[in-house]
């Protein structure tokens, strides 16, 4: 809840580019990141923002079967996307178009898949109506699923295939929101990318004997997820008054009439676009927001890569993560 005068204060502050915490419109908060604190998971990452947002993502790999009708399902998904669904898989304005490593000609029956869920811990969501929390989690899960499984998702899905047509790796990406302090979706994506960077998959060797295909999976998880560097990050812009800001605080989120989430990968490609909130966005503003988001996305990605490189160095040195201490 927010009062009339607070709303006025925030809206005018955004207009003047002096926000309530001293940031300008396009300033992000500090992001802290740690990987590998869940030993039971194949990969994990926790992202915390200065204002309290706290997201934990775990990736667990398992052997799954490629569904016989995977092709049909994938087609149905495509139709869904084209038919004005809220996520446009790489179809937005200014797309430099397919550089996707896994998309293109690859058959759906030769691909692994990623299954994502977003859940909220009760302590994080005491401020919300439980029904709103559920729909928010559903929305974010769907977006995550669509982005990661699309041609622009980054992860090389074809590399996750073990036996074409029958067996593949399934990456279960589970995001848990531990605390809420605004800018949740961006944090979830940042944590997901971090967790995929941290994920190791066991090596699988396939043998063909007498036309029968057998595979063996090693105990140790050694292989990295191919294409994690191409996993996009999102930049969510909230429209407040006639202006837009990034990385909103909870109060700013309450003042915003619309949200535009833009997923950008390190090649500068637009990977997905989602609009949330009740209000509308004018076409001219939309184009401006997408452009800004593409630029900011690069900054965000380079910052993210630096943090991940530091994490990789820490793990190489054998230093334990701080975890939840």
């Amino acid at each position: 809840m927010i009062s009339v005068s607070e709303r006025d204060y925030i809206t005018k502050g955004v207009d003047r580019s002096v926000r309530a915490d001293g940031r300008a419109r396009l300033d992000f908060r500090d992001l802290n990141l740690e990987t590998g604190m869940i030993t039971q998971a194949s990969g994990s990452c926790r992202v915390t923002l200065e204002g309290g947002t706290d997201v934990l993502v775990g990736v667990k790999v398992e052997v799954g079967s490629i569904e016989p009708d995977a092709e049909a399902a994938a087609d149905a998904d495509d139709i869904d996307d084209d038919g004005g669904a809220r996520t446009a898989g790489g179809g937005g304005p200014g797309t430099d178009d397919t550089t996707g490593s896994s998309g293109g000609g690859t058959h759906a029956r030769n691909r692994g898949r990623i299954s994502c869920t977003v859940a909220c811990s009760p302590s994080a969501t005491r401020v919300f109506d439980p029904r709103d929390v559920e729909s928010m989690c559903n929305e974010y899960s769907q977006l995550l699923n669509r982005v990661l499984n699309s041609a622009h998702g980054g992860v090389d899905l074809a590399a996750l295939c073990i036996v074409p047509g029958s067996t593949c790796w399934v990456l279960n990406v589970d995001a848990l929101v531990l605390d809420y302090g605004g800018g949740l979706l961006d944090a979830i994506f940042a944590a997901t990318r971090g967790a995929l960077h941290n994920t190791r998959i066991p090596r699988a060797t396939v043998e063909q004997t007498d036309g029968r295909v057998e595979f063996e999976i090693e105990d140790e998880e050694t292989e990295i997820v191919a294409g994690w560097e191409d996993v996009p990050l999102t930049v969510s812009m909230s429209k407040i008054g006639y202006r837009h800001i990034v990385d909103p605080t909870p109060l700013e989120e309450l003042c915003s009439s619309a949200r535009l989430t833009v997923a950008v990968n390190r090649r500068g490609n637009l990977c997905a676009l989602q609009k949330g909130g009740e209000g509308g966005i004018e076409p001219s503003l939309l184009a401006e927001m997408v452009q800004t988001a593409k630029q900011l996305g690069q900054t965000l990605l380079s910052r993210h890569d630096t943090l991940l490189a530091a994490e990789a160095r820490r793990i190489a040195k054998g230093v334990d993560p701080t975890g939840f201490r």
Partner: peptide, 13 residues
Amino acid sequence: HNDNEPIADQERE
């Protein structure tokens, strides 16, 4: 009433 006074940028900062 709910109306804020005019607040200058410097004051906001």
